[in-house]
Every structure is written in C-alpha cells, then in structure tokens.
Design a protein around this nucleic acid. Structure first.
Lengths: 152, 152
DNA sequence: CTAGATGCAAACAGTTTGCGTCACT
DNA sequence: AGTGACGCAAACTGTTTGCATCTAG
C-alpha cells in the first residue's frame, strides 16, 4: 500500500518518480504546484497556493489548483490539516471530551476524556505558548463503513 | 470566569436563567433553538439546526439561526466541534505529527509526536470501530496573542 | 492518437450583512 | 421608549462543474 521511493528531494526528477509511483501524469502545473507546496512550510489554503503558483505560471487557473490539490490528497502526496474543514458543526456537550470520527462517512461521536490516556506535552513548545486545551480526534472506520469496504 | 448555575435542566426557566447569567435577551427563537440543540445529540450543522427549528417556528430565518449560534458560541453555551471549520488547509509534512493552534490568530504549527505522551484508548469504543490514527490539536495562545490580550 | 489535464465561466453551498420592522427589558 | 433581535434579500467566499481546448503518454 505504501510506496518506498528512492528519493524524497524536491527535484523535477523526484517529482516524476513520485508521479510514476502513483500513476499520475506529469504536467508543468503539477510540478510547480508541488514545488510550491514543498517550499511553503506553513499550512496553506488553496487560495494561498494559487497566489504562490501564479508567480511561476501567471495563467494558471484556480480550478486547476483545486483539482491538483485533490489529486495530490488522494495520492497521499499531501495531507489535510484537519478532517473537519467545511461546514461549521456545533455541539451542546459542554463537558470536556474528545471525538471519534469515521474517515469514510465523516460521522462524529463523543468520546469521554477518561477513555484516553492522559495527554501531556513533554517537550519544549514555542516560547510563550500557553496551552489551554487538547482537541483529540480518534480517526478510523466505523463498523458500517468497515463492512462496506470489505465487501468490495 | 465560569458561571455556576443552579439548574442545567432543559426547561424554559433554566434557559431564562442561563440567558440572565450571560446577559442575553430571552426570545422565543433563542429558546426554541436552544431546546433543539439540547435535543440533538449529534453534531449538527447550522442548516440541520434550522431544519429542526422550523418544525416549531416555520417562519424563522436561516440568518437568525446563524446569528443565534454565534451568540451562543460567544457566550459558551455551545461549542464548535472543531476549530478548523472553514477553508481547506493542506500540508506537505507527511510524517505523523500533531498541531499547535493559537485560538486567537488561528495560526497552526507542527508539533512532533514525540513531544506528547503516547496516546492510548483504554476504554470501550463503539463495537467494530477500527482506529487508524489520532489527530491532536494543542490549543492555546501564542506568545504574540498573549501579549496583545494582556495589554487590554 | 487518445485519455486525461487545463482554463474559463457559470453554478453552488455555506455564511454574512444591511436594513426596515418588531419585541424584550 | 430604546436597544437590540428578527426576517428578508442581496452580497460574499470558498469550492465545484461543464465544456472546449490542449498536452502527456
């Protein structure tokens, strides 16, 4: 399931190799977008990637950036920062608790804090950062989605 | 900072009390929305709340539901499921890691897994749920935002 | 040569805003 | 009586889609 690649350097050759490993066509746009992503060490929005890439390819369209990001996500070349992007979701449960998420159907259920080993930060955080709380998502497959994916 | 209330039951009287404690006007719409939220034990979107509330107040507007949800969020009567609702954010870092989030400026930085005590689920999950990974957000205030809030 | 990638514009979903009217305090 | 909550419609933002054209394999 996981591909081991001989190079992870951010070079055109490495990118061709990555694409080959995932069965993706190598296009100029994809190459530049990939380069931009590797160079941006924050957690950019598609819009931010678009701005960055336009420096190289002024004629690129935002739609292409979106499509390419989805392609890269599916191939596992990049990740989303959170499974919860999109619509606002609210809850009335004011007790501290975590969430159990099915990555397939996106269902969310509550998970009592006491069911998880206590979380402690042991290392050095950026100076001055004041921790207020932990938000933990336990991500996996719910029984229903597991059954569905087995069938195929 | 935190209000202790003599009743948490979902009654009109309790709601009046809650509103009084938070300085909110008590309106019919707010009352019905609050009731609906308490009755919905999943993690509804504003749209879903709207649908639910329309059963009671057919003439209510979606804008009111949004405004009320924000009011309740600010007052702390309800919570958002994730701090990451909204725009898609992506990252090239494919190593397993967590995130450090400033709740004020919403900045995101990476946090190595090894800096956090190992996470283990100790209790019973819903039968058949297959855990794949943990997504942990360490939420707090970054140095800059802490300085800013102290000034005021 | 052909499947699929790109660019454009239009469509869409979720959310916010301005404003006139109405209701709580 | 006055502040602010409501309802409506229009505006806005982020994202997707249909389609004609172009390009990698």
């Amino acid at each position: 399931m996981r591909q081991q690649l001989s190079s992870v350097a951010n070079s055109p050759a490495a990118f061709r190799e990555l694409c080959a490993a995932h069965g993706l066509a190598v296009t100029h746009q994809r190459q530049i977008i990939y380069q931009a992503l590797m160079a941006m060490h924050d957690h950019p929005s598609p819009e931010a990637v678009y701005e960055q890439v336009r420096a190289e390819i002024p004629s690129i369209s935002l739609a292409t950036v979106y499509k390419t990001i989805h392609t890269f996500l599916e191939a596992g070349l990049i990740q989303e920062v959170s499974i919860h992007h999109g619509t606002l979701r609210i809850e009335a449960n004011r007790e501290p608790h975590y969430h159990l998420i099915c990555s397939e159907c996106r269902s969310v259920s509550d998970l009592d804090e006491t069911l998880v080993s206590p979380i402690r930060v042991q290392g050095k955080l950026p100076r001055g950062f004041e921790v207020r709380k932990f938000a933990l998502d336990v991500i996996g497959l719910c029984a229903a989605c597991r059954a569905k994916s087995k069938k195929q």
